[in-house]
């Protein structure tokens, strides 16, 4: 489904991704862990198409299509969704209106008819229950004045409505209390199926107690330095990232 080979990216003159390789197959959940500054969020942003990063090498294909040449909206239409670490507050943009427009543009791009207002409301109602969001939120301006937890739940709501085939969660757990964390994890778990994959980027192992990954990768210094099963996360939690640094230095 997603295949990243030798991906390099920089911001201004600073190289951040130094040759990332990653393959995600349908239905899999991959966790990417790593210390601050290792390039986790850059990887997420590059996959979603943020143009503040310049890709200087490598390839990314999604369902066999070259993704790096696509505009952010084209990637969304193909089925990619990025849950932002810091969702943007947009005053004056109504959450429901925005989401309806976005969904219908995606549907149009995929040759589907737009949803009627009534059908959309029905869908929203169902998805809001999934993320345990009060219906008052949909008539508020997008993320404006939302608490950290509300913003992350709003990301999950958008993901649930847009039904991507690949969800990328960029430190969705950061700043969440345990109840909000469970809600987020629950939304992801309910969306898990044989055709939908997730890349879960996190600094801490805690989230992975609730979203159990198939594969865990460690991103360090702009490269994936170690991959393993879910037990790797526990090992990292116990020993910290320095342990890996030392062991990788030792092996060199």
């Amino acid at each position: 489904m997603l295949k990243i080979e030798g991906l390099k990216a920089r911001i201004e003159e600073k190289e951040i991704l130094k040759g990332v390789n990653l393959e995600v197959k349908p239905g899999e959940v991959h966790a990417i862990m790593g210390p601050n500054g290792s390039g986790k969020s850059t990887l997420a942003s590059v996959l979603a198409g943020k143009d503040t990063f310049e890709v200087t090498g490598g390839t990314v294909t999604f369902n066999g299509k070259d993704m790096l040449g696509m505009e952010p909206e084209e990637r969304a239409h193909e089925g990619i969704f990025l849950a932002f670490q810091y969702p943007v507050e947009i005053p004056g943009v109504n959450t429901a209106n925005f989401l309806k427009t976005a969904l219908n543009e995606k549907r149009e791009a995929n040759g589907q008819d737009p949803l009627s207002a009534a059908d959309f409301l029905k869908l929203m109602k169902e998805k809001m229950e999934l993320v345990e969001m009060d219906k008052a939120f949909i008539n508020r301006a997008l993320n404006e004045g939302f608490s950290g937890g509300e913003k992350k739940r709003n990301e999950m709501l958008q993901m649930a409505v847009l039904e991507p085939t690949l969800g990328i969660l960029d430190e969705t757990d950061s700043g969440l209390d345990i109840d909000a964390l469970k809600i987020v994890a629950n939304a992801v778990n309910k969306m898990r199926n044989a055709n939908r994959s997730f890349v879960v980027i996190t600094h801490y192992q805690r989230l992975l107690d609730y979203i159990v990954p198939d594969v865990v990768h460690v991103l360090q210094g702009g490269k994936i330095v170690k991959s393993g099963g879910k037990e790797l996360a526990l090992e990292l939690e116990e020993k910290g990232y320095d342990w890996l640094k030392k062991s990788s230095e030792l092996t060199v």
């Binding site: 952010p72 909206e73 990637r75 990025l82 947009i90 004056g92 943009v93 925005f98 427009t101 976005a102």
Partner: peptide, 21 residues
Amino acid sequence: FYLRSRGMTEKGAKRMLTRAF
């Protein structure tokens, strides 16, 4: 970028943000 990452076209997203302004 946030709006475009959800599938809105650049033109549509700009219009929505201008309208919001």
